[in-house]
Simulated scan of single mutants.
Amino acid sequence: MKEVITSYLLSYSRKTIALEELENIAQGEGKSYLHFAELILELEEDGILECVKAKGRTIKKPQLAYSYRINQAILKDEHFNRLQRARSVLHKRIQLDRYFQLPPVQFEQDQPYLQKISEYLQKNNLPQDRVPAPERSFELIGDEKWMTDGSGVELLKRISLWDEMRVIPVADPLMLAVDVSKRENSIHFHLIVENKTTYQGLLPALRDTEFTTLIYGSGRKILRGMDHFHEQVPLTGQHHFYYFGDLDLEGINIWSELSESIDARPAIPFYSACLTYASVAGKRNHRRVEQALANFLKYMSDEDKQKVREMFEKGHYLPQEVLKTNVLQDLWRNW
Protein backbone atom coordinates (compact mmCIF):
# COMPACT_ATOMS: atom_id res chain seq x y z
CA MET A 1 0.00 0.00 0.00
CA LYS A 2 2.85 2.38 0.77
CA GLU A 3 4.10 2.30 -2.82
CA VAL A 4 0.60 2.95 -4.16
CA ILE A 5 0.23 6.02 -1.96
CA THR A 6 3.73 7.41 -2.56
CA SER A 7 3.31 6.87 -6.30
CA TYR A 8 0.07 8.86 -6.21
CA LEU A 9 1.69 11.62 -4.15
CA LEU A 10 4.62 11.91 -6.56
CA SER A 11 2.32 12.76 -9.45
CA TYR A 12 -0.08 14.89 -7.35
CA SER A 13 -0.24 18.47 -8.62
CA ARG A 14 -1.36 20.23 -5.42
CA LYS A 15 0.76 21.02 -2.36
CA THR A 16 -1.75 19.66 0.15
CA ILE A 17 -3.99 16.60 0.19
CA ALA A 18 -7.06 15.79 2.29
CA LEU A 19 -7.19 12.71 4.51
CA GLU A 20 -10.38 11.63 2.72
CA GLU A 21 -8.51 11.48 -0.59
CA LEU A 22 -5.74 9.39 0.96
CA GLU A 23 -8.37 7.00 2.29
CA ASN A 24 -9.91 6.69 -1.18
CA ILE A 25 -6.52 5.74 -2.64
CA ALA A 26 -6.05 3.04 -0.02
CA GLN A 27 -9.55 1.56 -0.26
CA GLY A 28 -8.69 -0.66 -3.21
CA GLU A 29 -5.82 -2.28 -1.30
CA GLY A 30 -8.14 -4.15 1.06
CA LYS A 31 -6.25 -3.22 4.25
CA SER A 32 -7.73 -2.30 7.63
CA TYR A 33 -8.06 1.27 8.88
CA LEU A 34 -5.40 0.54 11.50
CA HIS A 35 -2.95 -0.55 8.81
CA PHE A 36 -3.76 2.57 6.79
CA ALA A 37 -3.38 4.87 9.81
CA GLU A 38 -0.02 3.36 10.78
CA LEU A 39 1.22 3.89 7.24
CA ILE A 40 0.14 7.56 7.20
CA LEU A 41 1.85 8.13 10.54
CA GLU A 42 4.98 6.49 9.12
CA LEU A 43 4.88 8.92 6.18
CA GLU A 44 4.53 11.74 8.73
CA GLU A 45 7.56 10.47 10.63
CA ASP A 46 9.56 10.22 7.37
CA GLY A 47 8.73 13.87 6.63
CA ILE A 48 6.86 13.01 3.43
CA LEU A 49 3.54 14.19 4.90
CA GLU A 50 3.29 17.18 7.22
CA CYS A 51 0.17 17.88 9.27
CA VAL A 52 -1.75 21.07 8.41
CA LYS A 53 -2.34 22.09 12.03
CA ALA A 54 -5.13 24.54 11.26
CA LYS A 55 -7.31 21.68 9.98
CA GLY A 56 -6.93 19.60 13.16
CA ARG A 57 -6.83 15.84 13.71
CA THR A 58 -9.39 13.07 13.87
CA ILE A 59 -10.94 11.93 17.16
CA LYS A 60 -10.56 8.31 16.09
CA LYS A 61 -7.27 6.75 17.13
CA PRO A 62 -4.61 6.59 15.82
CA GLN A 63 -5.27 10.28 15.23
CA LEU A 64 -4.56 11.48 11.71
CA ALA A 65 -4.56 15.00 10.32
CA TYR A 66 -7.53 16.09 8.22
CA SER A 67 -5.09 17.65 5.74
CA TYR A 68 -1.41 17.14 4.88
CA ARG A 69 1.31 19.07 3.07
CA ILE A 70 3.30 16.92 0.64
CA ASN A 71 7.10 17.09 0.70
CA GLN A 72 7.88 16.26 -2.93
CA ALA A 73 11.65 16.63 -2.45
CA ILE A 74 11.83 13.82 0.12
CA LEU A 75 9.52 11.64 -1.97
CA LYS A 76 11.73 11.97 -5.03
CA ASP A 77 14.90 11.38 -3.03
CA GLU A 78 13.50 8.16 -1.53
CA HIS A 79 12.52 6.77 -4.95
CA PHE A 80 15.84 7.86 -6.47
CA ASN A 81 17.85 6.15 -3.72
CA ARG A 82 15.86 2.92 -4.10
CA LEU A 83 16.62 2.83 -7.83
CA GLN A 84 20.31 3.54 -7.23
CA ARG A 85 20.52 0.64 -4.79
CA ALA A 86 18.82 -1.66 -7.30
CA ARG A 87 21.19 -0.53 -10.04
CA SER A 88 24.17 -1.58 -7.92
CA VAL A 89 22.92 -5.16 -7.40
CA LEU A 90 21.13 -6.04 -10.65
CA HIS A 91 23.02 -7.23 -13.75
CA LYS A 92 24.67 -4.36 -15.62
CA ARG A 93 22.64 -5.12 -18.77
CA ILE A 94 19.40 -4.13 -17.02
CA GLN A 95 18.74 -0.45 -17.71
CA LEU A 96 16.67 1.28 -15.02
CA ASP A 97 16.62 4.75 -16.54
CA ARG A 98 12.92 4.56 -17.47
CA TYR A 99 11.91 4.04 -13.84
CA PHE A 100 13.17 7.49 -12.87
CA GLN A 101 10.28 8.94 -14.93
CA LEU A 102 7.65 6.31 -14.00
CA PRO A 103 5.53 6.08 -10.82
CA PRO A 104 7.35 4.18 -8.01
CA VAL A 105 4.63 1.52 -8.00
CA GLN A 106 5.78 0.41 -11.46
CA PHE A 107 9.24 -0.42 -10.14
CA GLU A 108 7.75 -2.26 -7.16
CA GLN A 109 5.57 -4.37 -9.47
CA ASP A 110 8.50 -5.16 -11.76
CA GLN A 111 11.11 -5.83 -9.09
CA PRO A 112 10.51 -9.62 -8.67
CA TYR A 113 10.85 -10.08 -12.44
CA LEU A 114 13.94 -7.86 -12.59
CA GLN A 115 15.59 -10.07 -9.97
CA LYS A 116 14.88 -13.23 -11.98
CA ILE A 117 16.13 -11.66 -15.20
CA SER A 118 19.27 -10.55 -13.41
CA GLU A 119 19.87 -14.09 -12.13
CA TYR A 120 19.38 -15.47 -15.66
CA LEU A 121 21.89 -13.00 -17.11
CA GLN A 122 24.46 -13.69 -14.40
CA LYS A 123 24.23 -17.39 -15.17
CA ASN A 124 23.81 -17.39 -18.96
CA ASN A 125 24.62 -13.91 -20.25
CA LEU A 126 22.65 -12.82 -23.32
CA PRO A 127 21.02 -15.58 -25.42
CA GLN A 128 22.45 -16.33 -28.87
CA ASP A 129 19.52 -18.14 -30.55
CA ARG A 130 16.08 -16.79 -31.48
CA VAL A 131 13.31 -18.80 -29.81
CA PRO A 132 9.51 -18.42 -29.47
CA ALA A 133 8.22 -16.14 -26.73
CA PRO A 134 6.84 -18.92 -24.45
CA GLU A 135 10.21 -20.69 -24.44
CA ARG A 136 12.21 -17.58 -23.60
CA SER A 137 9.60 -16.51 -21.07
CA PHE A 138 9.92 -19.80 -19.19
CA GLU A 139 13.73 -19.58 -19.23
CA LEU A 140 13.67 -16.09 -17.75
CA ILE A 141 11.07 -16.24 -15.02
CA GLY A 142 9.56 -19.74 -14.99
CA ASP A 143 6.24 -18.74 -16.57
CA GLU A 144 5.72 -19.57 -20.25
CA LYS A 145 2.79 -17.11 -20.55
CA TRP A 146 4.56 -14.10 -19.06
CA MET A 147 5.30 -12.57 -22.48
CA THR A 148 2.21 -13.65 -24.39
CA ASP A 149 -0.44 -13.02 -21.72
CA GLY A 150 1.35 -10.90 -19.13
CA SER A 151 3.53 -7.80 -18.98
CA GLY A 152 6.79 -9.45 -20.07
CA VAL A 153 7.20 -7.72 -23.42
CA GLU A 154 6.57 -4.25 -21.99
CA LEU A 155 8.97 -4.87 -19.10
CA LEU A 156 11.78 -6.11 -21.34
CA LYS A 157 11.36 -3.06 -23.56
CA ARG A 158 11.32 -0.84 -20.48
CA ILE A 159 14.76 -2.13 -19.42
CA SER A 160 16.15 -2.11 -23.01
CA LEU A 161 16.49 -5.90 -23.23
CA TRP A 162 13.72 -6.88 -25.65
CA ASP A 163 15.93 -6.98 -28.77
CA GLU A 164 18.79 -8.64 -26.87
CA MET A 165 16.50 -11.48 -25.70
CA ARG A 166 16.08 -12.62 -29.33
CA VAL A 167 12.42 -13.51 -29.05
CA ILE A 168 10.29 -14.64 -31.98
CA PRO A 169 7.03 -12.67 -31.49
CA VAL A 170 3.75 -14.53 -31.31
CA ALA A 171 1.55 -11.44 -31.65
CA ASP A 172 -0.76 -10.99 -34.63
CA PRO A 173 0.90 -9.23 -37.59
CA LEU A 174 0.17 -5.58 -38.18
CA MET A 175 -2.63 -4.43 -40.47
CA LEU A 176 -1.13 -1.59 -42.46
CA ALA A 177 -0.98 0.16 -45.80
CA VAL A 178 2.32 1.22 -47.41
CA ASP A 179 2.82 3.90 -50.06
CA VAL A 180 5.51 2.12 -52.08
CA SER A 181 6.34 5.31 -54.01
CA LYS A 182 8.06 6.56 -50.82
CA ARG A 183 10.14 3.42 -50.21
CA GLU A 184 13.38 5.17 -51.25
CA ASN A 185 12.85 8.11 -48.88
CA SER A 186 15.55 8.65 -46.27
CA ILE A 187 12.93 9.62 -43.67
CA HIS A 188 9.68 7.71 -43.18
CA PHE A 189 6.63 8.95 -41.31
CA HIS A 190 4.11 6.44 -39.93
CA LEU A 191 0.63 7.14 -38.57
CA ILE A 192 -0.90 4.64 -36.12
CA VAL A 193 -4.66 4.95 -35.54
CA GLU A 194 -6.54 3.15 -32.78
CA ASN A 195 -9.83 2.39 -34.54
CA LYS A 196 -10.72 0.64 -37.81
CA THR A 197 -13.23 3.34 -38.86
CA THR A 198 -10.50 5.99 -38.73
CA TYR A 199 -8.09 3.71 -40.60
CA GLN A 200 -10.59 3.16 -43.41
CA GLY A 201 -11.43 6.86 -43.55
CA LEU A 202 -7.79 7.92 -43.87
CA LEU A 203 -6.61 5.18 -46.24
CA PRO A 204 -7.61 6.89 -49.53
CA ALA A 205 -5.54 9.96 -48.57
CA LEU A 206 -2.27 8.11 -47.84
CA ARG A 207 -0.68 8.86 -51.22
CA ASP A 208 -1.44 12.57 -50.84
CA THR A 209 0.50 12.87 -47.58
CA GLU A 210 4.14 12.84 -46.44
CA PHE A 211 3.53 9.53 -44.66
CA THR A 212 4.90 6.18 -45.82
CA THR A 213 2.48 3.98 -43.87
CA LEU A 214 -0.92 3.99 -42.19
CA ILE A 215 -1.15 1.42 -39.38
CA TYR A 216 -4.30 0.07 -37.74
CA GLY A 217 -3.62 -0.21 -34.01
CA SER A 218 -6.69 -2.20 -32.95
CA GLY A 219 -6.69 -0.87 -29.40
CA ARG A 220 -4.07 -2.43 -27.16
CA LYS A 221 -3.03 -4.99 -29.80
CA ILE A 222 -0.63 -2.40 -31.19
CA LEU A 223 1.58 -2.82 -28.11
CA ARG A 224 2.53 -6.33 -29.25
CA GLY A 225 1.91 -5.91 -32.98
CA MET A 226 4.69 -3.34 -33.39
CA ASP A 227 7.18 -6.14 -32.75
CA HIS A 228 6.54 -7.16 -36.37
CA PHE A 229 7.03 -3.69 -37.82
CA HIS A 230 10.59 -3.96 -39.15
CA GLU A 231 9.92 -7.43 -40.58
CA GLN A 232 6.76 -6.25 -42.34
CA VAL A 233 8.17 -2.87 -43.39
CA PRO A 234 11.89 -3.48 -44.15
CA LEU A 235 12.68 0.09 -45.12
CA THR A 236 16.01 1.80 -44.54
CA GLY A 237 16.25 5.32 -43.17
CA GLN A 238 14.84 7.15 -40.17
CA HIS A 239 11.39 6.27 -38.82
CA HIS A 240 9.04 8.73 -37.09
CA PHE A 241 5.81 7.44 -35.54
CA TYR A 242 2.62 9.32 -34.68
CA TYR A 243 -0.37 7.96 -32.77
CA PHE A 244 -4.03 8.95 -32.93
CA GLY A 245 -6.53 7.28 -30.61
CA ASP A 246 -9.74 8.13 -28.79
CA LEU A 247 -9.26 11.16 -26.58
CA ASP A 248 -9.98 9.26 -23.40
CA LEU A 249 -7.87 7.92 -20.54
CA GLU A 250 -7.43 4.48 -22.10
CA GLY A 251 -6.35 5.95 -25.44
CA ILE A 252 -3.75 8.06 -23.65
CA ASN A 253 -2.56 5.03 -21.65
CA ILE A 254 -2.11 3.04 -24.88
CA TRP A 255 -0.06 5.87 -26.39
CA SER A 256 2.03 6.11 -23.20
CA GLU A 257 2.83 2.37 -23.13
CA LEU A 258 3.57 2.39 -26.86
CA SER A 259 5.96 5.33 -26.47
CA GLU A 260 8.00 3.28 -24.00
CA SER A 261 9.10 0.99 -26.85
CA ILE A 262 9.06 3.35 -29.86
CA ASP A 263 9.30 7.12 -30.07
CA ALA A 264 5.61 7.62 -30.90
CA ARG A 265 4.29 11.16 -30.62
CA PRO A 266 0.63 12.15 -30.33
CA ALA A 267 -0.86 13.18 -33.69
CA ILE A 268 -1.69 16.66 -32.41
CA PRO A 269 -3.51 18.03 -35.52
CA PHE A 270 -6.16 15.32 -35.12
CA TYR A 271 -6.48 15.71 -31.35
CA SER A 272 -6.77 19.49 -31.61
CA ALA A 273 -9.52 19.09 -34.21
CA CYS A 274 -11.39 16.68 -31.91
CA LEU A 275 -11.36 19.30 -29.16
CA THR A 276 -13.42 21.66 -31.31
CA TYR A 277 -16.38 19.27 -30.86
CA ALA A 278 -18.56 18.73 -27.79
CA SER A 279 -17.35 15.89 -25.56
CA VAL A 280 -19.66 13.09 -24.44
CA ALA A 281 -20.18 11.41 -21.07
CA GLY A 282 -18.95 7.88 -20.46
CA LYS A 283 -15.97 5.56 -19.93
CA ARG A 284 -15.69 6.40 -16.23
CA ASN A 285 -14.18 2.98 -15.55
CA HIS A 286 -10.93 3.81 -17.32
CA ARG A 287 -7.76 3.88 -15.24
CA ARG A 288 -6.22 7.33 -14.86
CA VAL A 289 -2.41 7.25 -15.00
CA GLU A 290 -1.29 10.74 -14.01
CA GLN A 291 2.19 10.46 -15.52
CA ALA A 292 0.81 9.25 -18.85
CA LEU A 293 -1.64 12.15 -18.95
CA ALA A 294 1.05 14.67 -17.99
CA ASN A 295 3.40 13.40 -20.72
CA PHE A 296 0.61 13.51 -23.30
CA LEU A 297 -0.35 17.10 -22.42
CA LYS A 298 3.24 18.30 -22.92
CA TYR A 299 2.65 18.14 -26.69
CA MET A 300 -0.49 20.31 -26.57
CA SER A 301 -1.09 24.04 -26.57
CA ASP A 302 -2.10 25.64 -23.26
CA GLU A 303 -5.65 26.10 -24.56
CA ASP A 304 -5.99 22.43 -25.53
CA LYS A 305 -4.44 21.28 -22.25
CA GLN A 306 -7.16 23.13 -20.35
CA LYS A 307 -9.89 21.64 -22.53
CA VAL A 308 -8.61 18.10 -21.91
CA ARG A 309 -8.36 18.60 -18.15
CA GLU A 310 -11.88 20.04 -17.95
CA MET A 311 -13.24 17.22 -20.12
CA PHE A 312 -11.80 14.51 -17.87
CA GLU A 313 -12.93 16.31 -14.72
CA LYS A 314 -16.50 16.03 -16.07
CA GLY A 315 -16.04 12.33 -16.83
CA HIS A 316 -16.28 12.98 -20.56
CA TYR A 317 -14.28 11.84 -23.58
CA LEU A 318 -14.01 12.34 -27.37
CA PRO A 319 -14.03 9.36 -29.76
CA GLN A 320 -12.04 9.50 -32.99
CA GLU A 321 -15.31 9.23 -34.87
CA VAL A 322 -16.23 12.86 -34.13
CA LEU A 323 -14.00 13.68 -37.13
CA LYS A 324 -15.81 12.89 -40.35
CA THR A 325 -13.92 11.24 -43.21
CA ASN A 326 -13.49 14.43 -45.24
CA VAL A 327 -12.16 16.28 -42.16
CA LEU A 328 -9.73 13.45 -41.36
CA GLN A 329 -8.38 13.42 -44.90
CA ASP A 330 -8.02 17.21 -45.12
CA LEU A 331 -6.15 17.31 -41.80
CA TRP A 332 -3.76 14.60 -42.94
CA ARG A 333 -3.11 16.10 -46.38
CA ASN A 334 -2.37 19.48 -44.79
CA TRP A 335 -0.28 18.13 -41.88
Rank of each mutant, 00 (worst) to 15 (best):
L203P: 05
F211L: 14
I252K: 05
P266D: 02
I215Q: 06
N195G: 07
L214M: 02
H240L: 14
I215T: 08
M226C: 08
R224I: 03
R220E: 11
D246H: 05
L223N: 08
T198F: 03
A205K: 09
I262F: 09
T209D: 03
E194I: 04
S186V: 14
E231I: 08
L247R: 02
I254E: 10
F189D: 12
G217P: 07
D263L: 09
L203C: 05
G237R: 11
N185M: 09
H239E: 06
I192M: 07
F189W: 11
L191Q: 08
S186F: 11
I262G: 08
H240Y: 14
R224Y: 14
V193N: 03
H228D: 09
W255P: 04
I252V: 15
T212Q: 04
L203F: 04
F244Q: 03
I252L: 10
R224V: 04
M226N: 07
L214W: 00
S186A: 14
E194F: 01
K221C: 10
D208H: 06
Y243A: 06
T212C: 02
S261M: 12
E260Y: 08
L223R: 06
I222S: 05
Y199S: 00
L247P: 03
T197C: 05
Q200G: 11
E260G: 15
I252P: 11
T212W: 03
T197N: 11
F189G: 12
E194P: 04
W255N: 00
N195W: 01
L249S: 07
H239N: 09
T209Q: 03
F241M: 04
A267C: 13
L235Y: 10
G225R: 06
Y199L: 01
D208C: 06
Y199N: 02
E260T: 10
N195V: 04
L191M: 09
T213Y: 01
D246Y: 01
S261C: 11
I262N: 01
R265M: 10
S218C: 12
L223F: 09
I215F: 04
S261F: 12
T212V: 05
M226D: 05
I187S: 13
I192V: 11
T197Q: 09
L214Q: 01
E210I: 10
L214R: 00
T209S: 15
L235H: 13
G217Y: 02
A264F: 03
Y242S: 08
F189P: 00
I187V: 15
G217N: 02
L191W: 06
Q238H: 13
M226W: 09
W255D: 00
G245Q: 06
I192P: 11
D263I: 04
T236L: 14
Y242E: 06
F211I: 05
Y243V: 00
H239T: 08
E231S: 15
E231G: 10
T209A: 06
L249T: 10
E194K: 00
P204D: 07
I252H: 08
H240T: 08
H240W: 09
H240M: 09
L249D: 07
I254S: 07
